[in-house]
Amino acid sequence: MRLYIKFLLMHLKSAMEYKASFALTVLGQFMTSFSAFLGIYFMFGRFGAVGDYSFEETLICYAAVLFAYSAAECFFRGFDAFESVISNGEFDRAMVRPRPVMLLVLCSRAEFARFGRLMQAVVIFAYAIPASDIGWTADRIFTLIMMCAGGTALFAGLFIVRASVCFFTVEGLEFMNIFTDGGRELGTYPLDIYGQPVLRFYTYVIPLACVQYYPLSYITARTGRFWYALLPLAGFVFLVPCFALWRIGVRHYKSTGS
């Protein structure tokens, strides 16, 4: 952990060498998610609601997923951009260091420019939390925090899967976007609106609904089951198979070296 913080400081120092560029990139990141927000805004302007969810409820859902995705992108960038870590030899370097390879990959990148998106999520929260007619009791606030934390773990897990796939193919990597970017995009709206098959997939295969739809329905009083608020823990459980896949990938790398 101490080592990780040292690495973060180094990344921050590096980024600060190019302040103007950094600021523009943050702005760019902010705009990326802003145009997505504008899209949602226009859609609700036209239709008023989606299924039985109001604009504010959708925004809370969207912001939680955006927050989780951006936080994971910021701190787990080493996995998200793993093909570059391999191709420029950093991974070989990590293999000759006396530390867990996974820790070193985690440390190898940190993308603070993603704060632009994180800020966006915070701004949307700041608007939607008071504007929605949800009574913000302690357990609901707790649930929202769980959504963000569990979601971050979930997306981190997806990035680790993506990195593990890099050991086998770099060309075919694009299909992982279905789950990473696709998860973020689908997660804009509460997952139950897409129908049962999609909801089941995102409950049992990739537990995105566990950090999104189920806790959201607790927050919006659509259900009284408190254990729905604890479902975001599934995001952390999801990390276990991801680690396993990573180990397989490293073993493969050691045997092909490519």
Binding site: Y18, A20, S21, F22, A23, L24, T25, V26, L27, G28, Q29, M31, T32, S35
Partner: peptide
Amino acid sequence: VSPLGMRIVAVN
């Protein structure tokens, strides 16, 4: 000064 930042903005 920031081709990357400029590009992200333009693409958006």
